[in-house]
Design a protein around this nucleic acid. Structure first.
Lengths: 137, 137
DNA sequence: TATAAATTCTATAAAAATAGTAGAATTAAA
DNA sequence: TTTAATTCTACTATTTTTATAGAATTTATA
C-alpha cells in the first residue's frame, strides 16, 4: 500500500499537471484543492524538489511547478522516491537491494526468484502509469 | 514490501511443503531450519491456522502440516492474510475496500482507475506464484 | 496416572515508521 | 519596508511492527 505521503505527492503532481504551462502554484492552493494538510504538503513538495520532479520559485508570487512533463513521471518514480523499493523484499530489489538478515544463503533462497518475477511485472505496470495518463482519464 | 511476518509465513509454508506427506512438523524444527524467532513463529502458525492454510495436532508429537496442496496456496493469499490489500490504496482494493478519508468525491478521483489497473496486473502476477512453484525452483 | 512435550491463549513491551506540527530563517515582488 | 511565499530544522504523537513472557491446555507414552 502507498503511504499517505505518497498519495499526497501524487495528488499534488496531478494538480500541477492540470495547470497552464508556466503557471506557478502556491502550496496553499494545492493543499486546499487536493485536501492535504498544508504543513505536511510543504515537506512533500520539498521532497519532490529534491527528486527533481518539481521546481520552485521563492518569495512573493513564488510556488511550485513541474520540471518534467507529465508523461515522463511514472508511478514507479514516485513510489521509489517516497515508499522506496517496488520489490516485495529488499533482496529482490533493483534500486534498493539489501540482504535479508535472516537469510542463510541467498543463492539457496526459494523466495527470491519468484519475488523478482513479481517485481518485473509490477514495475512494468507501474511504469505504464504516468501523471499524464492519469490526468487524461 | 512484505513485512517480516509475511516473509516468515512464506518460509514456514515452504518448509512444510518440502516435508513428506502426512509428516507433522514441530514449531521448533521450522524455526531452526528457517531461522525464525520461535515465539514469533508460534503466532504466525496460529494465524496460518486461522486462515485455514495449515492444520495442527496438539500435545506431545503435535505440530503443524499443510491443509492445502502447495499449488493451491498463492502469494496473493499469504499477502492478503498478513499484509492485507494488494492494491496500492484501499479505495482500489477488491478485498479490503475503504474510502479515502481525504477524497472529496471518489468518482472524480484521477488516481483510482490507474491504481486498479496496477492492482489487476499485480494480482495476476501474485496468483501465478504458488508455494509449489517456489519449491520446484 | 504421572510426566514430558507439544500447541494455544492473553498480555505486554520495545523499536521503528508514519503522519503531522511549530516556528524561525530566507527570499523576492511591489 | 512590507508582504507573502519557500526553506530548514526540530519536535511530537500515534500507529504498526516485531517480537517476548508465561500460564493453560492437550495428548502420547512410560
Amino acid at each position: 500500500m502507498l503511504s499517505q505521503k505518497t498519495k499526497y505527492a501524487l495528488k499534488a503532481l496531478l494538480y500541477l499537471a492540470q495547470q497552464d504551462i508556466n503557471h506557478i502554484s502556491k502550496t496553499t492552493d494545492i493543499a486546499e484543492s487536493a485536501n492535504i494538510p498544508k504543513k505536511f504538503l510543504e515537506q512533500i513538495l520539498l521532497d519532490l524538489k529534491r527528486g527533481h520532479l518539481v521546481g520552485s520559485k521563492q518569495g512573493k508570487l513564488g510556488g511550485y511547478y513541474l520540471l518534467k512533463s507529465g508523461n515522463e513521471i511514472t508511478l514507479a518514480d514516485i513510489h521509489r522516491l517516497f515508499d522506496g523499493a517496488i520489490a516485495l523484499l529488499p533482496c529482490a530489489s533493483l534500486n534498493f537491494y539489501e540482504r535479508c538478515s535472516d537469510c542463510k544463503d541467498e543463492s539457496e533462497c526459494l523466495l527470491r526468484h519468484g519475488l523478482m518475477t513479481i517485481r518485473d511485472e509490477t514495475l512494468k505496470a507501474m511504469q505504464g502509469i504516468t501523471i499524464a495518463s492519469l490526468v487524461k482519464k
